[in-house]
């Protein structure tokens, strides 16, 4: 339970500066908070509210709309198993049931050791690779029950370094160098873009 760390606060300021209106940074900042704590805490939401200058209630309002934001602790590894149509046709539901057996929890629950949460999710855009799943949003395609078991065993043994703990979304961030920055364009900035003006003037001459 924490406000954003000083390092994350730097990142937060950089993200906010990209947008013409601060509130647009709300979802990226919620991801940042989730990356820091593994879930989205009330304290972090209050901090985000300060940063984007809205009320905490507005932050909660946005946060609770989106599936990916967890409002209570989840496993270090969130295992999302797709059961939507393309996966259902090729054994997605059976894979989910197998996962529930293997980890001895129902979908939506977290194992007692805090390592795994299983989710029964909607289409994750890997339909030609069914049945598929994600661990912390990293894809695994055409998964057999045996492969699922090995994956879980690997994760327990800590031999899957490529999968960061839950919350870390992208390991590469956008960074706009100051010298190359065109700048956020505020909705109140009524000027016509310069390249349009130039082209019109050249056309007229």
């Amino acid at each position: 339970m924490a406000r954003l760390s000083s390092e994350n606060l730097e990142t937060a300021y950089e993200i906010i500066a990209r947008y013409p209106v601060k509130k647009s940074a709300l979802i990226p900042l919620l991801h940042l908070a989730q990356e820091q704590d593994g879930w989205v805490t009330d304290v972090a939401m209050a901090h985000i509210a300060e940063l984007v200058e809205v009320t905490p209630a507005e932050v909660i309002g946005t946060c609770t709309f989106y599936e990916m934001f967890k409002r209570k602790p989840v496993g270090k590894y969130v295992v999302n198993i797709c059961t939507n149509i393309s996966c259902q046709l090729l054994g997605g539901e059976e894979l989910l049931h197998h996962a529930e057996q293997k980890l001895a929890i129902k979908a939506g629950a977290t194992t007692a050791d805090g390592l795994f949460t299983i989710e029964d999710v909607e289409c994750i855009a890997a339909c030609t690779e069914a049945p598929c799943l994600q661990v912390n949003y990293r894809y695994f395609h055409k998964i057999t029950h045996g492969e699922f078991d090995s994956l879980i065993d690997d994760l327990k043994a800590g031999t899957r370094d490529e999968i960061p703990a839950h919350g870390t979304l992208a390991k590469v961030r956008q960074h706009i160098p100051a010298a190359r920055r065109a700048g956020a364009v505020a909705p109140t900035d009524r000027a016509e873009p310069v390249w349009l003006i130039r082209n019109r003037q050249e056309g007229a001459s």
Binding site: R18, Y19, P28, L30, V194, W195
Partner: peptide, 17 residues
Amino acid sequence: GTDFSVDVVLHWGAGAY
């Protein structure tokens, strides 16, 4: 090198069809 300038901002969703 032209007068055309624009920032492209990468934004993430958070799970909502």
